[in-house]
Design a binder for these strands. Structure first.
Lengths: 199, 199
DNA sequence: ACGCTTTTCTACCATATGGTAGACAGCGAT
DNA sequence: ATCGCTGTCTACCATATGGTAGAAAAGCGT
């Protein structure tokens, strides 16, 4: 219908991020994606030859988006680990809460075939490596609590994605998704992580 | 085949926990569950009239199991919040790592229909309530860092389930699932949480 | 042995789903 | 005008899946 210039492809990607991320890969049909985009299923299969390749594209794009957000946050923060961590939290939490599917998709990876997981892991590895190295240095400098840098990265990642992708858990502790609720969540998350990492 | 006395039902439940928890509800077919149990699909549908009711039973059982483990850990620990938290981590991490699907299933809840999620939330609410109240008291006593008790419960939950259910993340930081790796993970997780909660 | 209940299995069925084949439309270049 | 290319659609297809109907076992009390 509308689809001016190659916009269909990106619309499909966007809808797929939301659907895969919120309900899971196999719970979403190509028909449903097509319906959301307002296009026939075959159009989806024209841009992405199979559901699997669509998933690969979705994963890759999500990883790139998140990496860019984190990268920018780190660069704009002063050269102090706690400040940088705070900046990253702030930068990630905004898109994560506005679009829970983003991190939900990342979390989905562990349920997919090892192939897909491996492809994404490979893509993300350099970033993880840099984060691990950085934390290791700062621990040696005494600006962070001494610990296993790799596991600390994994733990911080687990905390942030966990809290951002489990509305059920937040609902169980009677948290409200209002503006003030959001601010409180960000503050508590930040203090939680900083307390966990301070020397 | 074998199935002495009403064992079939519990075998189906067990297999379903593993499959739903590791790969997600909609990615698992009744045929597959039946295959794992070694029984015809209709036998599954005899014990659980539909896939949805099977899911409900699986969720309920998992919640009860986890609650029992946590309850026992809390009761056996001394009356000191940090010691109790450590005991809970220890108690939960063992079954969680041996059977990742357990927590994976809990995490799956947010992807399911609001109905299922609500049923589980209701069941878990009293436990959450008690945990929140307890943390609140101990914060007032100065034995824990001052914070929003509800959000702290959610954050600690997110950290533990996140780290226990994302092999992909752990793999990305080159963690190995050996005995020593497990011990290191438990130590780091404990220190991480205790540091986050200490006054 | 015989009935009654519980448990499991063998057909089936309707539908949803990923994917193929090919027609049709828009459009820029010649 | 028409050729060729790109993008979208309609028409199908094979298969997988949740679920139904009812037959065969398997116990079990009498």
């Amino acid at each position: 219908m509308v689809t001016r210039r190659g916009m269909t492809r990106s619309a499909i990607l966007e809808a797929s991020v939301d659907l895969f991320g919120s309900r899971g890969f196999s719970a979403v049909s190509l028909d449903e994606i097509a319906g959301v985009v307002g296009v026939a299923k075959q159009t989806v299969l024209y841009w992405f030859p199979s559901k699997d390749e669509l998933l690969d594209a979705v994963l890759e794009q999500t990883a790139l988006e998140l990496a860019a957000v984190i990268e920018a946050a780190v660069r704009s923060a002063p050269d102090e680990p706690l400040a940088r961590i705070e900046a990253v939290i702030k930068a990630v939490l905004r898109p994560a809460v506005r679009r829970p599917a983003l991190l939900g998709l990342v979390r989905e990876v562990s349920r997919l075939s090892p192939d897909h997981a491996a492809r994404l892991t490979d893509q993300v590895r350099p970033f993880v490596r840099r984060a691990t190295d950085y934390l290791g240095e700062e621990m040696a400098n005494g600006r962070l609590r001494m610990a296993d840098p790799g596991l600390v990265v994994a733990l911080a990642y687990a905390t942030v994605t966990g809290i951002a992708t489990e509305p059920t858990a937040l609902q169980a502790v009677e948290w409200q998704a209002t503006t003030t609720g959001l601010r409180r969540l960000r503050r508590e998350l930040t203090e939680f992580l900083l307390a966990a990492l301070r020397p």
